[in-house]
Amino acid sequence: MATVDLPLPRLGVGAETAPRPIKVVLNWGRRYSLWVFNFGLACCAIEFIAASMARHDFIRLGVIPFAPGPRQADLMVVSGTVTDKMAPAVRRLYDQMPEPKYVISFGACSNSGGPYWDSYCVTKGVDTVVPVDVYVPGCPPRPEALLQGIIKLQEKIASESLSSKGMRAKYGGHRAATAAEVTRPLVAPPTREVVGG
């Protein structure tokens, strides 16, 4: 199958030459309205939910857990074990998110496979599938640890450069998806041959 390379993300001339105060304001806006898409996979998802509940309440930090889907989200929190069977779906949903997008890897399993690193069916870290911005350690991390990870991400966003070069450095490289990867169907199961028919 011929693959078509997607164009790398590019910003308009206006963004490249925007004066510094505008960039600061833009980053400030991005920082405090992170609509989050919870990729809840395992135990960590429960702690993610706990962080979104009244006790820890990450809306205080500007993280809004009401994104209806990946297409309306800025931040994806991968919480839980990514299995090889699930990994294509993670990539797909990541590709559906509009840029600029951020990923928090929440918990040992999504950081590096964690407890299941020697399992035959677990992806050794979600960063082999999508670029990750912040890694939160823990198994599962406590909700406060997620809040700290979010604060860390916000600091990163605040210091982000807005040039196309910076964007390319982030999304480009060997992890960029090709058009084929975004649009290809899931792997079809082997067709069953009719025996004796």
Binding site: A42, G80, T81, T83, M86, Y116, D118, C121, V122
Partner: peptide
């Protein structure tokens, strides 16, 4: 099923 299969039974053996 199987999207969350982590092979725990196999890992128990080692």
């Amino acid at each position: 099923v199987g999207y969350m299969h982590r092979g725990a039974e196999k890992l128990f053996e080692v």
